[in-house]
Design a protein around this nucleic acid. Structure first.
Lengths: 222, 222
DNA sequence: ATGAAAGTTGAACCGAGTTTCAACTTATGA
DNA sequence: TCATAAGTTGAAACTCGGTTCAACTTTCAT
């Protein structure tokens, strides 16, 4: 619930700044020593907590540096602005979700059941990382590019799995548009079930995922 | 695209302030004359445009009053704060969506097809009122109560329709949880398809709705 | 017609929070 | 060991936009 980055097993600190491909906003901000690396991690942890609890608007740099137990000015050694930390965080969190779900969907009986495992895994993740859910959602307004990338990437992953299902004859082939519609539909489903049964209320992830998967597999027909 | 409130056929101006049941934030702010009513409408129209284009953070009261062509101080005759207009707008927009969809789903062949009509109608709405989509989304952070009410109400409406479907033997009865899961799943689907094929891209609503409804009705099975 | 109520105006106030910066401390490697 | 680079500090400058308010104008009921 407290949601420190290291709790989630943060991947690549410098990466959060520099991004997977190319530079984000500015360079020369990456830490050059182990000491700096540690400070950067403290700031990211603090930012996650601050933004997750108060949202972007009500969060402040002072709030972040206080939590991180560093001086105000230190913040600007690693980030150009409030928006910049947020963007770094979005990239990081987006990666977290991916890395959490990936191993959980490996041993799937069939391609459709894989989606059930994915949803269950995602729901479990939301259940103990509500802050992450919130931050990604708020990215729609604070870091639109990061937001869009996050969802387009996720949709592409789902679509790829659906292609697999089609190839294996486990899914009806209704053309490319159908596949994309299904991918986005499944993603929207997952996100809203996360909101309803992970953030606003609590419910057994396996149960919810089972019902949802039933919908995907057979629809609602009697 | 410009999205004036009157373009949407705004319902109850005073209602937007006072809310359907009870008072929102403050009273004594409702206009008492036709002149005041007109000014309030101008401000709400301007606020919709401003928030829709720039988002809450980058919007300003000055921006709103300039668009509305009224003095800065006039704003405070009708609203207590920036948050207050936003909340009023959310209530209003939430109503708009409902009122737009309702008539479109009346002549439905069967209960499941009703969901197709609902989605198609919603997609059409999003297509020419992107601002509304954005404002409701941003409500998650600016007016959480309004946001939650909007989606819980919408989910309840979908669930009620699904009950109907079950009663008529057009839907499998898998218990109460299944119904709620389905309702939220369908809602999430609709929202994300709106984002993908209405806000970010454009696509024939009827086509998208047909594919999505197919998923709901029969699932993806071969 | 006239006075009170409703509505309008915009300059000025105000607080809050971001960002800068020059002095200072710690680490590193030659 | 010493010089240089990296990192840290926090007070103060700066910005910006929300909010207030007292004077002024319009409307409307009597």
């Amino acid at each position: 619930m407290s949601g420190a980055v290291d709790k989630l097993g943060s991947v690549g600190l410098a990466d959060a700044l520099v991004g997977q491909s190319g530079s984000p906003a500015s360079d020369g901000k990456a830490p050059r020593t182990a000491r700096g690396e540690k400070t950067l991690r403290k700031i990211l942890d603090a930012a996650l907590a601050e933004f997750g609890q108060k949202g972007f608007h009500d969060s402040s740099i002072v709030g972040i540096t206080t939590r991180a137990k560093v001086a105000l000015g230190t913040f600007y050694t690693y980030f150009d602005s409030k928006e910049a930390v947020f963007a770094a965080l979005v990239r990081d969190m987006s990666q977290q979700v991916r890395d959490h779900v990936a191993p959980d969907i490996e041993g799937a009986a069939d391609e459709i059941d894989r989606e059930r495992l994915a949803l269950a895994s995602y729901l479990r993740f939301v259940l103990d990382h509500k802050e992450v859910y919130r931050i990604i959602d708020e990215a729609e307004f604070v870091d639109p590019a990061g937001f869009r990338t996050h969802y387009e990437t996720a949709a592409a992953r789902i679509a790829a799995r659906l292609e697999q299902a089609t190839a294996k004859g486990q899914m009806r082939d209704d053309g490319a548009l159908a596949t994309e519609v299904r991918a986005w539909a499944i993603m929207g489903m997952n996100v809203f079930l996360g909101l309803r049964f992970g953030v606003w209320g609590r419910q057994d992830p396996e149960l919810v995922a089972a019902h949802a998967n039933d919908l995907i597999a057979r629809g609602v027909q009697p």
